[in-house]
Design a protein around this nucleic acid. Structure first.
Lengths: 107, 107
DNA sequence: GTCTTCCATAACCATATGGCTATCTATCGG
DNA sequence: CCGATAGATAGCCATATGGTTATGGAAGAC
């Protein structure tokens, strides 16, 4: 679970990888060639990034002949949203405690 | 804007840093010494991580005598939540388009 | 069958990253 | 004033990371 989160955060830490993922979210399924055309890095670099995104569950690939079609799996972002929510809630809870304390002191 | 996002994702990519941030969210303000005691790495390492978190806006520090008190700023997570939401919405939009297309084809 | 094309993998390289110890500065306690 | 403590910084090192070119292997094109 924690390792899932770790691979997620790690995968999204690189701007080139984020750009690939964003493109797939925005424009849907793409071949490696199409992604390479706009990535600004070499085709092997794109392949490596895609492999990392796939390991993190952020993309899936579909082989069709000699082409590999990749698409985004935004559902994989869920743990990230969960974590963010949890952190915010922790913070909020302490804030509420403070409110409570101040309320008691007021009496 | 994009650099903000980049420094955010980068800052959260490291597990030791995430643990520091989580601790601050959960238990509120802490001194460097207190954080070091549970971090599993040396005090200089903690200081470096805190500096990176601070640059990303995730924590703020308050100097009091010779102690530095750090606390979390969960509001800094907002760009992350925004980005996640945007990615999901992109994907959803294409899904809706598909629905729409299928609907038309149905007629 | 032969030549391309598409993508993954291999091998390599430069730099970034995260850790350490040592040290410096500032503050506190005596 | 002097020693001790808190934390930041400096300097160093090993490894991780992201990039490249070269190559391999499978599927189309001819």
């Amino acid at each position: 679970m924690v390792e899932t989160r770790d691979s997620l955060f790690r995968a999204l830490a690189d701007p080139t990888r984020r750009a690939l993922f964003e493109r797939l979210c925005e424009h849907g399924e793409q071949t490696v060639g199409a992604l390479t055309a706009d990535a600004g890095v070499s085709q092997p670099a794109v392949s490596k990034h895609l492999a990392i995104l796939r390991q993190a569950g952020l993309v899936i690939d579909r082989q069709q002949g000699r082409q590999a079609h990749y698409s985004a799996r935004p559902a994989a972002l869920a743990p990230l949203a969960d974590w963010t929510g949890r952190m915010t809630r922790f913070w909020q809870a302490r804030f509420d405690d403070l409110d409570d304390l101040l309320g008691r002191m007021d009496q």
